[in-house]
Amino acid sequence: MKFTHLGRTGLTVSRLCLGTMNFGPHTEEAEAHTIMDTAHDLGINFFDTANVYGWGENKGRTETIIGNWFARGGGRREKTVIATKLYGDMGEWPNEGKLSALNIRRAVDASLRRLQTDHIDLYQMHHIDRATPWEEIWQAMEVLVAQGKIIYVGSSNFAGWHIAQAQEAARARHFLGLTSEQSLYNLMERSVELEVIPAAEHYGLGLIPWSPLHGGLLGGVLRKEREGVRRLNDHAVGRLEDKREQLAAYEDYAAELGHEPGDIALAWLLSRPAVTAPIVGPRTLEQLHAAVRAIDLTLDQKVLDRLDEIFPGRRPAPEAYAW
C-alpha cells in the first residue's frame, strides 16, 4: 500500500479509502468484519462511513458493525483513521438532521456510541446546510475538537464556493477549517474539475472521490453484460445506454493495454490533482482485492491523453466557459 497526507494536514492515510456503505444492506456483519481485517492486512488504514448508512429503519447499522469490529480489539481501532458523516435525518423530529449546533452535538455523540470509540478522526458534513450560518457550524465543531471528540473536519458534496465560504469563515476564527472534500469524481463524471478541485488545491483540502467506477459502469460493464454476470438497476441501465459508445471504446482500450477497466479508472483518479484516496466500497473480499491492484498501476501521458479523448474533462473555471 502507498500512503499520503490528507490534504495539508500531517495525517497519513492510505491511497485507497475503504467505503463501508454496503455493510449491513448488502454485506452481512461477519463478512464485513473479514473485509475490514483484510483491508488492514493490505495496508488500508482509512475507512469511511456515515451515520445514515444502513438506510431506512436501519440507519446507523453500518456504524454499529464497525463499532463491533473495533470492540474486538487487536489494535483495530488504533490502526484505523475513521471518517464518518452527519447531515441526513436520523429521525422524524426537528433537529435530527442537518448542521445546527444542536444536531452536531447530538449526532457526534450518537456516532461515538455506535462506533464504540472516544473520538472520530475525520468528521464530515455530508451536504451543505444553506440554513445554518458558518459561525454556528464552526463554533460547534471547535467545541468538539476541544472536547477531543473529533480531530479533523471535512466536507462532502460541496461546491467550490461553499469551500471558499467555509474556509474564510474558519480563517476569521483562527480555526483549521476543512481538511478534505468528498465528491463524486470519476472518468465519466468530471464536473468537480471546474471549481471544486481548484478550490481544494487553493485551500489545501484532500479530495476523496466517491463512486470511482460510476456505479460499476467503469468496471467492465459491457463485458459483464455479454457474460450475463452483471445486473444493473433501471437508473444505471439508462446511463449505460447514454454512454454505451464511450464505454465500448474505453473497454477496448483497456483490453489493448492489458488491464482491467476498473483498475484503469482507479489508477486515473490516483493521478489527479488534489486526490488523496478514492473510496472503494466492496461488497465482497474479491472486490477489495481487485481494487488494490490499481495502486501499482502507473498511467503514462499517452494513456492519460487517450482517456481524455474518450471521456473529455473540464478546464478550471472560468476558462471552461469564458476566455
Score class of each variant (00 low, 15 high):
48 D>Q: 03
118 D>M: 11
92 E>Y: 15
102 L>E: 13
73 G>F: 11
39 A>V: 02
114 R>N: 09
78 E>G: 12
84 T>I: 14
99 L>I: 04
57 E>L: 03
104 I>E: 06
38 T>R: 15
37 D>F: 06
70 F>D: 07
45 N>I: 05
109 D>G: 07
103 N>H: 11
74 G>S: 15
104 I>L: 10
107 A>V: 07
95 N>L: 10
59 K>C: 02
80 T>C: 08
46 F>Q: 04
46 F>A: 01
105 R>G: 08
47 F>G: 02
75 G>S: 12
43 G>H: 00
39 A>T: 09
68 N>G: 03
92 E>N: 15
69 W>P: 06
41 D>Y: 02
80 T>L: 04
47 F>A: 05
36 M>A: 07
94 P>S: 13
40 H>Q: 02
98 K>H: 04
62 T>N: 01
78 E>I: 10
59 K>M: 12
112 L>K: 04
83 A>T: 13
59 K>A: 03
98 K>F: 00
86 L>Q: 13
40 H>V: 01
104 I>T: 13
106 R>Y: 09
87 Y>L: 00
61 R>H: 14
83 A>G: 09
93 W>C: 15
61 R>D: 13
62 T>L: 00
82 I>W: 08
108 V>Q: 11
70 F>E: 05
50 A>T: 00
63 E>S: 05
72 R>S: 09
83 A>S: 10
112 L>C: 05
90 M>R: 14
110 A>F: 05
80 T>A: 10
37 D>C: 09
60 G>W: 04
113 R>L: 14
98 K>S: 01
93 W>Y: 15
36 M>R: 07
75 G>Y: 12
112 L>V: 00
113 R>G: 14
76 R>E: 08
61 R>L: 14
49 T>Y: 01
48 D>I: 00
77 R>S: 11
73 G>W: 13
